[in-house]
Each structure stands twice: as structure tokens, then as C-alpha cells.
Design a protein around this nucleic acid. Structure first.
Lengths: 214, 214
DNA sequence: TGCAAACTTGCAACGAGTGAAGTAAGACAG
DNA sequence: CTGTCTTACTTCACTCGTTGCAAGTTTGCA
């Protein structure tokens, strides 16, 4: 985030932001498939070829902030307290990502709802999103295992992360696909969505067989 | 599966099979990216354009049997006994898919390991696989909710399916990525893999917070 | 001032995917 | 068996994403 000191680096960062801004603007106005990379490049006043030296593909530009968000989650795990349970740390890490990413008013406040809409409507974007999700889960699992080497082996860590993320994501998608106006749903009644997601977390934490045990 | 009676339909089915066979053969020998659609079409003795009237994209041809396998899982859910617990039915359904799909010797015995290898090495294939996985989860959730309307509402069903599938898939990937020779691992010691997957199921069933409750 | 490194550009090319128009072969009524 | 209708297949032309290459252009630095 610390902007480089050289002119070169500042210029690069400016171009990068211009590309992102132009892309989001065009995606929102015209639609994803209707926006060509040439359009985006033109919007940022660079050549089409230059686009590809900033982003390896069209989808990638939608996830420009992903690494940053993941870093937050990793930090949470690394800074665990000595009495923390693995589950608590993991839930906390995941909540942080969601709070900063999907809540509204932050730096990427405008990007998040657009991204969510595109994920649920554009196959190419959905594929890219799922790939990132999977790799994020793997990395979270590694971190979690490292943070609790005596409590979780590799497989348990992977299963734990998978169960939690799987429950939340599948619930999220189920909600999004069930209503035709995603933005309105999120903007209009964010609390309802959060409540459903909390139930999903609960299912994962207590186990999908919990009901049978009562 | 019932082959049509007209000459026309039989011919179509033959072409479809020829395309699938040619594609798998080429993917296995040359690699996915190195195989063009023109190559596949040539291998099946049709024009490139014709390929697209059978499969909407290059990835799709790798998942030609998916619907069939899903139907098995749905049947399991629909045929639940009156005393069955939701979790048991779901686990049974998922196991059925895995047994028929990833075990070795069945009709698609040759396709499954190739597919797995491509999923873990070719981004485009991975994206397609994950999309199918997600949509399969959604459909499983709907079925599960229908089968147990009084036990699970929509959100619970989505969370339940997500947790189970998430745990298993993330574990699977973690195993696959951890070893460089996927085929050898699966062929050489399938029991070890199955044991790990059973542990993943256990994590999901008992809850990711299970350890803390003991 | 001048050179090297880093960036940008234009161009050519390839592969995936789509639309339109024409041809040939199976289906079918008479 | 014959003409017609349907449907698959083909060919052609085109758009778009993506990559390699061979220039230019700008910036950092001596």
C-alpha cells in the first residue's frame, strides 16, 4: 500500500488504478461481456497490449484487492492468543474478510456488490472466483495447521476450513441466487443476510449431524 | 441411455462418442492446452464448427458424464427410508458419486484419473469443475430440503451440503496437491485416500468445534 | 549528457467461440 | 418410389482474449 517514491512507480500505480476504475465503470454500465479489453484500455488511456502487463486476464481485474484481504485473515490467525481455540480463530479470520469485503462504505465498497453480481451471472467470473476461493482455503488451512500444530494435522485443518467456508459460501450463493435483486437485498437488509450466514457458521461449528445429537 | 431408434439418432450418438474419445485420447497424449478443438474435430472426422453443436466449450467435453452421476445421488436422496437422518442420506449420496466416479474399473474408469489430473493442473478445467461442483451443491441442497422439509429449511440444507462437500473437497485437493503423482497415489494406495476422506466427513458431521466439546 | 533498464506500443498470429447461408442426407407422406 | 421437409454438417467470415516479438519512449542513474 505504501506508494513507491520514484516517478516510475507512482505512474505505474496511477495506470493500475485507472485500469481498475475504467473496468469497474464499464462493467457496471455496459455489462461484463459487452466490455472488451480494448474498451478498458482506452478508458485508461493505454494500449490494449499494456492491459496485459498489469493483469494477466480480464477476470483478474475484478479481484485486484484479494491478496490484501487475505493478508488480513492470515494476520488474525498468526496473532492468535494462547488460549484461543482453532475454530474461534478461524471464524474470526473469516468474519474479518467478509466484514471488510462485503460490507459497505470501505475503500472497495463499490466493487463488492458489483463483483457479487458478476460472480452469480457471468460464468467466466464465477470460475475465477471459485479458483481463488479454493486456493484461499488451502492457504488458510496451511496457516491454521501451523498455528495449532498440536491440535490439527494437515488433513483436519483442510477439512475444518473446507467445512466452514463451504457452509458459508453455499449459503451465500443460495441466498443470492434466490433473490433477483442482489444489490437491493444487500443494501436494503444486510442484517438479514448476516443472520443467515451466522446460522451457516453455526451448522459448520456444531456439525451437520448436530440435530441428531439433541 | 436408450439409444434412439432412427438412423439419424444413432449416427449422432456415434459422433458424440467419437468426439469424447478423440478428446480424451488427445488430452492424455498431448496435454489439454496443446490440443485444439480443430484437432479433436479432426480426430472425430467432423468439422470444427460441428464440435460446438455437441459441446458448448472445450472444457465441457471432460464432464460429459456429470449429469448421469448426479442423477445417482439424487435418486439416493429421493429414496430415503422413513427413519433415515438427513446427514446419513447426504453422506450416502455423496459416497455413491465418489465410488462410481473416482473408483477404478467402471465405465468411466479411464476418464476419472485424467480428469482429476487436468483439474489440478489446468486452470480452465479447474474453473469449470468448480462451477459444476457449486451448482451440484445447490441442487443437492434443494433435494435435501425437499426430502426433509420439517427437519431442514433452505438455509440449513445449503449450509449442511456446503459443509460436507467443502470438507471433503478441500481435503481431497490438499491430498492431491501434496503429492506430485496423482495417478500413482490413487492407483497405488486408494485405501489411504479413502481413509483421509472419511476423516474429513467425520469433521463435518461432528462439527469443526468437536474437539473443544470433549 | 548519455547510457541502461523498465515501460509502452503496434503488429502479427493463434485459438475459442458465434452467426449466417448453403448443401446433403435421413424422415416421411403420398 | 418420389418429392418435400427437417436436421445435421459444412464453409466462411468475424469478434474477442491472449501471447510473442520488435520496435519505440521514458525514467533512473552515473
Amino acid at each position: 500500500m505504501v506508494t513507491g517514491q520514484g516517478l516510475r512507480e507512482r505512474k505505474k500505480e496511477r495506470t493500475r488504478q485507472a485500469l481498475i476504475t475504467a473496468a469497474l465503470e464499464l462493467f457496471a454500465r455496459r455489462g461484463y461481456d459487452e466490455t472488451t479489453i480494448a474498451d478498458i484500455a482506452a478508458g485508461a488511456d493505454v494500449s490494449t497490449r499494456t492491459f496485459f502487463s498489469y493483469f494477466p486476464s480480464k477476470e483478474e481485474i475484478l479481484f485486484a484487492d484479494t491478496e490484501e484481504r487475505l493478508a488480513l485473515a492470515f494476520a488474525i490467525i498468526d496473532e492468535r492468543g494462547p488460549t484461543d481455540e482453532p475454530v474461534d480463530v478461524l471464524v474470526r479470520a473469516m468474519s474479518t474478510i467478509f466484514d471488510r469485503a462485503e460490507r459497505f462504505g470501505a475503500a472497495f465498497g463499490r466493487a463488492a456488490p458489483l463483483r457479487l453480481r458478476l460472480i452469480s451471472s457471468v460464468p467466466a467470473v464465477q470460475g475465477a472466483a471459485l479458483q481463488r476461493l479454493l486456493s484461499a482455503q488451502q492457504r488458510l488451512a496451511v496457516r491454521l495447521h501451523s498455528a495449532f500444530p498440536e491440535r490439527l494435522d494437515r488433513v483436519e485443518a483442510a477439512a475444518t476450513v473446507g467445512a466452514l467456508v463451504g457452509a458459508v459460501v453455499n449459503t451465500m450463493i443460495s441466498i443470492v441466487d434466490g433473490s433477483d435483486r442482489v444489490d437491493e437485498l444487500l443494501a436494503g437488509d444486510p442484517e438479514r443476510v448476516l443472520a443467515e450466514l451466522r446460522r451457516a457458521v453455526d451448522v459448520a461449528v456444531r456439525g451437520i449431524g448436530a440435530a441428531a445429537r439433541e
